[in-house]
Design a protein around this nucleic acid. Sequence first.
DNA 1: TATATAATTGAGACTGATTCTCAATATCAT
DNA 2: ATGATATTGAGAATCAGTCTCAATTATATA
Lengths: 145, 145
Amino acid sequence: MKSEPHKVFEQLLNSKGLKVTKQRNDILDYLLKAKKHVTPEDIYRDLNKKDANIGRATVFRTLHLLENAGFADKIQFADGRLAYEHKFARPHHDHMICVECSSVLEFSNATIEKIQEEISKKFMFKPLWHRHEIFGRCKKCNKMD
Amino acid sequence: MKSEPHKVFEQLLNSKGLKVTKQRNDILDYLLKAKKHVTPEDIYRDLNKKDANIGRATVFRTLHLLENAGFADKIQFADGRLAYEHKFARPHHDHMICVECSSVLEFSNATIEKIQEEISKKFMFKPLWHRHEIFGRCKKCNKMD
DNA sequence: TATATAATTGAGACTGATTCTCAATATCAT
DNA sequence: ATGATATTGAGAATCAGTCTCAATTATATA
């Protein structure tokens, strides 16, 4: 049986005349099962551990596909590395990122979102997405120094 | 006569046992005179147009120095490119970045800042800096399609 | 089911940004 | 002026991500 996200993904592919492939499904699977943000390199490495092989290019291509379709979000660590998470049944949220251990806490705040809307409107700016990341030290890392 | 920022920069260098060099001063100058965000490549290119030469490595090294000292801030365009701006006598602000033309609008909002503080406190997270970027289409680019 | 068409793939070359290495040079306290 | 030490630029190295292209695979339709 196919999971709901896979069905939705197939619909997207069909609607764009794109094909359903093993690689695309594997990457979506990986993302759905991951408990935290994963890097393209994580996906490449782990999927190649198992069966056959999957190219780096395909990993990037598929992540872009998922991102553009609104099925995945990316965050960027303090050193610039990118990581992705799926968005199925996960409401929008922003992140607090530990500069020591790269752990990520999620937050969301309706007031901030509303103010963003107002500011955009005032500047006649049409917002498409935003990134709100607070960098600092998590509870654990803060204790250690 | 030395500008205030240069004096402050020299103090920083002295306090860390670092040396005041022509290259460091030139880069700070460039940043101070720039009207908008500049990329490391802008700095490298323009400073080499004039006298002598300055290495790319030095540009990056100096930008990191300025950034860590809190004298410069960086933003990242939608395609990942980095750009810097100086922070002398410029209050904190965040950005709206046009995904079409990379133009940048600034905004700041005390309520958002305050909420961030509260959220951090709640999670025992010690905030060091944050990045709040709204990506979208500026007034001009929005009209064109 | 076989076939035709078009999308997809992985390998590896390529790119652009940034970092590293190291010998030559410049700064600064004395 | 001198010596100790930090800084420099050139170019090699690295790294993430993109591109190219010939071989492969998915899918619509006969």
